[in-house]
Design a protein around this nucleic acid. Structure first.
Lengths: 312, 312
DNA sequence: TTGAAAGCGGTACCAA
DNA sequence: TTGGTACCGCTTTCAA
């Protein structure tokens, strides 16, 4: 009755409302969830909650979800396919009506044929045929960024974040776009310009770049596969007295707030995180109301934002 | 029966387990929650989810919660007492067994005598007598930091983040500690060294500092009330060609990852976020099992970490 | 040791 | 328009 659909006379309604206020009545959501088969909660699972990127995505999703009356349960996968899998099952336990998952490897692992799936929307570059997905074209963006870095005649362009322990889908696509751009430019492939970095954090990027510079000459440009890594890289370069962008141009990916205020401010691949949230929620609610329609893919536009770290 | 407490014979147990696997059975958590009166979910409410600080706190809480079998529902209050209030009620609706809340103003607003409270643990400096609380002594930390900045003979020490629209408890304490230090040092109070900043973000800090520098001489030191603001400030200083720390020393508060990798790396007040999470969860679970015991307060140690932004 | 039954607090349906 | 009743799926208790 509280949903206001049942027809009630005005006086009755008033009496009920009064009683509710008086007793400080709060509906029991577990009971409602049990009865309705839906809890009004969605899950959001990200690989590493400590990153500013996760923070911005979480904020967008929580805000959009809230506008539509959803609550958000947050989970950290630590890039672990087992954990991703486990979350799917938890979702089917009905405390979560659906799941927005940013998978890392997931080569068919968690999302599998024959595995009973809850309504799921994937965030990111993982290719598979089963679940709806919202993504940025990382390959094209990485290609464009590499071309932009090369424009003023730079040819020795390094890539930081090439692998990630187990190769992530995102890393593969960005590396692919980077290589495609070099090929277009007629720049010979140079393995010694690929800098790997096992975790995509400022700390390991700073360390990886430091070790790299100890053993190699300074490249003309450095394309970091995330802003977080770029922030770590800028710190290492600064510590060694390498000037950015005069001695080396630096770029990131994600357009995180702290990158805009980095010193120097960071050139990056930007995209609308709010749009990601809106689309992810749209796909998820559509999937919840109809489990059987075909897989939907939504591509989010990106753009290259040139800031001080790559000017000149 | 699934909890393994009911005595069952081995063959029966086996049969059941087989059936569960075969049917891909997943227990319905709404039903369990209804029956048990607890959902296994706690809420975490922070003012601004987009900040790296929120990200690091969320991560700690989600991880510690997970270790203890809890899930975490995440909420954003936008520093709005109404929203803080509302979340309390939602918690009582039993989809959340307890709430960890980082309030901003909350001068008795959400946490009130006579208001039916769910189990709540407050994070931060808000003083009130009703709810358990985990906090860092911001007053003492701000005082120590100001003294540290003054040590090499700096006397014109500015404070950034002094107000926040509606004055926040955190801002008041940090401003208080800053002023106490100046007084100890025998430095006359100078209102023109207080830089206000309506939102505690890099963007508004950068802007506020820019406007300030247009109208005032450069201070010898700048104490920003959060690392996020300090990151914005560093960007503004860099754009104007002001050298840090040679021309001005800069410090922050929170010891956020991106501050460690700022250029120059940021002097800050550091504290153990994992410890905050552990203590908050401990207080919360204790409160859930016994609603009536006295209010508990847990203070988390801090320390001043001097990095390049204030050396010399 | 096993099986049956009641009840948590809502919602939806039906009869009055 | 209203009040009554069954049922969502799990846990607990009690009887067999």
């Amino acid at each position: 009755m509280m949903n206001g659909i049942v027809p009630v006379s005005a006086p009755t309604r008033l009496r009920v409302e009064q009683a509710m206020a008086e007793l400080d009545y709060v509906p029991n959501l577990s009971a409602r969830g049990l009865r309705n088969g839906r809890s009004g909660v969605i899950g959001l699972a990200l690989p590493d909650l400590a990153t500013p990127f996760s923070a911005e995505i979480s904020q967008s999703i929580v805000e959009v979800a809230h506008e539509q009356g959803w609550s958000v349960q947050i989970e950290e996968t630590g890039s672990d396919p087992h954990r991703e899998q486990e979350l799917m099952t938890r979702a089917r336990a009905n405390l979560i009506d659906g799941l927005i998952l940013n998978p890392v490897v997931l080569k068919e692992s968690a999302v599998q044929v024959g595995v009973a799936l809850p309504p799921v929307v994937l965030l990111g570059e993982v290719t598979q045929q089963l679940a709806d997905r919202v993504f940025v074209d990382s390959f094209a963006a990485a290609r464009d960024m590499t071309l932009a870095l090369a424009r003023p005649g730079r040819r020795r362009i390094a890539a930081l974040g090439v692998n990630r322990g187990r190769q992530s889908a995102t890393a593969l696509q960005r590396a692919g776009g980077y290589e495609a751009a070099l090929q277009e430019l007629g720049i010979a492939k140079d393995e010694s310009l690929l800098i790997s970095c096992d975790s995509w954090t400022p700390a390991s990027a700073a360390e990886a770049l430091g070790e790299y510079l100890d053993a190699h000459p300074l490249p003309e440009a450095l394309f970091c596969f995330t802003d977080s890594m770029a922030i770590g890289a800028l710190n290492t370069l600064w510590k060694r007295g390498v000037r950015v962008p005069e001695d080396i141009a630096v770029a990131g990916f994600d357009d995180v707030i702290d990158g805009r205020f980095a010193v120097p401010s960071l050139t990056t691949v930007s995209f609308d995180k709010r749009a990601i949230a809106t689309e992810a929620l749209r796909l998820l609610t559509e999937r919840m109301s109809d489990r059987s329609h075909a897989q939907q893919l939504v591509e989010i536009e990106y753009r290259i934002v040139e800031r001080d770290s790559s000017r000149g």
